[in-house]
Measured scan of single mutants.
Amino acid sequence: TETRTFTDEREARRFEQEARDNGKDVQVRESNGKFEVRVK
C-alpha cells in the first residue's frame, strides 16, 4: 500500500486516475484540506 498526500485536489485526482488506469485499488480521503490517496 502506498499513500500520497496532496494539497492540490487536481493533483490528487490526476494521481488517482493514473492509478485506476493501471488497475490499482484506490481510496481518496480528504481531511483538513489535504487529500490522502491510498493505492493498493
Rank of each mutant, 00 (worst) to 15 (best):
T1E: 13
T1Y: 15
T1A: 11
T1D: 14
T1G: 12
T1I: 13
T1N: 11
T1V: 13
T1H: 11
T1S: 11
T1W: 15
T1L: 10
E2F: 09
E2P: 07
E2I: 15
E2H: 11
E2V: 14
E2C: 15
E2A: 08
E2M: 12
T3M: 08
T3L: 12
T3R: 05
T3F: 08
T3G: 05
T3S: 08
T3N: 08
T3Q: 06
R4S: 07
R4K: 11
R4V: 12
R4A: 08
R4F: 14
R4L: 12
R4N: 08
R4Q: 09
R4D: 06
R4I: 13
T5W: 15
T5K: 07
T5I: 15
T5N: 10
T5C: 15
T5R: 09
T5H: 13
T5F: 15
T5G: 07
T5Y: 15
T5A: 09
F6W: 01
F6N: 05
F6Q: 05
F6P: 04
F6S: 04
F6L: 04
F6D: 06
F6H: 04
T7Y: 13
T7W: 13
T7P: 09
T7I: 11
T7H: 11
T7S: 11
T7E: 14
T7F: 12
T7V: 11
T7C: 15
D8R: 00
D8M: 00
D8F: 00
D8C: 09
D8Y: 00
E9N: 02
E9I: 08
E9S: 04
E9Y: 07
E9A: 07
E9T: 01
E9K: 04
E9G: 04
E9P: 07
R10N: 14
R10H: 14
R10L: 14
R10W: 15
R10Q: 14
R10S: 14
R10G: 15
R10A: 15
E11P: 01
E11D: 10
E11G: 02
E11N: 03
E11R: 00
E11W: 00
E11S: 07
E11V: 03
A12G: 02
A12K: 01
A12Y: 02
A12V: 03
A12I: 02
A12E: 02
A12Q: 02
R13P: 03
R13M: 08
R13V: 06
R13G: 05
R13I: 08
R13E: 07
R13Q: 09
R13D: 04
R13K: 10
R13L: 09
R14S: 09
R14T: 07
R14F: 08
R14Y: 08
R14K: 13
R14G: 07
R14C: 11
R14L: 12
R14Q: 12
R14M: 11
R14H: 09
R14N: 10
R14A: 13
F15V: 05
F15S: 03
F15A: 07
F15M: 06
F15R: 02
F15C: 10
F15L: 05
F15T: 03
F15E: 03
E16A: 15
E16F: 04
E16H: 01
E16G: 06
E16Y: 06
E16P: 01
E16D: 03
E16S: 05
E16R: 00
E16I: 14
E16W: 07
E16Q: 05
Q17I: 06
Q17F: 03
Q17R: 08
Q17Y: 04
Q17M: 07
Q17D: 07
Q17P: 01
Q17S: 07
Q17H: 07
Q17L: 06
E18S: 08
E18L: 10
E18M: 10
E18R: 06
E18F: 08
E18N: 08
E18P: 00
A19T: 04
A19Y: 04
A19H: 07
A19N: 08
A19G: 03
A19I: 04
A19Q: 13
A19V: 06
A19M: 15
R20W: 05
R20H: 06
R20G: 03
R20M: 08
R20A: 05
R20K: 10
R20L: 10
R20T: 05
R20Y: 05
D21I: 10
D21R: 14
D21Q: 13
D21Y: 07
D21F: 09
D21G: 09
D21P: 00
N22T: 09
N22C: 14
N22P: 02
N22D: 10
N22R: 13
N22L: 14
N22V: 09
G23R: 04
G23C: 11
G23P: 01
G23F: 06
G23E: 03
G23I: 02
G23M: 05
G23N: 07
G23A: 04
K24I: 08
K24W: 15
K24H: 14
K24P: 01
K24E: 06
K24D: 07
K24F: 15
K24R: 11
K24Y: 15
K24G: 07
D25W: 12
D25G: 05
D25A: 08
D25E: 13
D25N: 09
D25F: 11
D25C: 14
V26N: 01
V26K: 01
V26H: 00
V26D: 01
V26T: 07
V26A: 07
V26S: 03
V26G: 01
Q27T: 13
Q27S: 13
Q27L: 11
Q27R: 08
Q27I: 13
V28W: 12
V28D: 01
V28P: 01
V28H: 03
V28L: 12
V28M: 11
V28I: 12
V28N: 01
R29P: 02
R29I: 15
R29W: 11
R29Y: 13
R29F: 15
R29N: 09
R29Q: 10
R29G: 05
R29V: 15
R29D: 08
R29M: 12
R29L: 14
E30L: 10
E30G: 06
E30H: 11
E30K: 10
E30F: 11
E30W: 06
E30T: 09
E30A: 10
E30Q: 10
S31I: 15
S31N: 13
S31K: 13
S31T: 13
S31L: 14
S31W: 10
S31V: 15
S31Q: 11
S31A: 12
N32E: 10
N32P: 01
N32W: 00
N32Y: 04
N32A: 05
N32H: 06
N32Q: 06
N32L: 06
N32F: 05
G33I: 00
G33P: 03
G33K: 03
G33F: 00
G33D: 06
G33N: 05
G33C: 00
G33M: 01
G33A: 00
G33E: 03
K34V: 15
K34R: 12
K34L: 14
K34C: 13
K34H: 12
K34N: 10
K34A: 10
K34P: 01
K34T: 11
K34Q: 13
K34G: 09
K34F: 14
F35V: 05
F35G: 02
F35K: 02
F35H: 03
F35E: 02
F35S: 02
F35R: 03
F35T: 04
F35I: 11
E36Q: 06
E36G: 01
E36S: 01
E36K: 01
E36L: 07
E36H: 07
E36W: 03
E36F: 06
E36D: 04
E36M: 05
E36P: 02
E36Y: 07
E36I: 13
V37W: 00
V37D: 02
V37L: 01
V37C: 03
V37T: 02
V37K: 01
V37N: 01
V37S: 01
V37G: 01
V37Y: 00
V37P: 01
R38C: 15
R38N: 09
R38D: 09
R38Q: 13
R38K: 12
R38L: 14
R38A: 10
R38W: 09
V39F: 06
V39T: 09
V39Y: 04
V39R: 00
V39P: 02
V39K: 00
V39E: 03
V39W: 05
V39Q: 03
V39S: 04
K40Q: 12
K40Y: 07
K40T: 15
K40F: 09
K40E: 11
K40W: 08
K40G: 13
K40D: 11
K40N: 13
K40P: 05
K40V: 13
K40S: 15
K40L: 14
K40H: 11
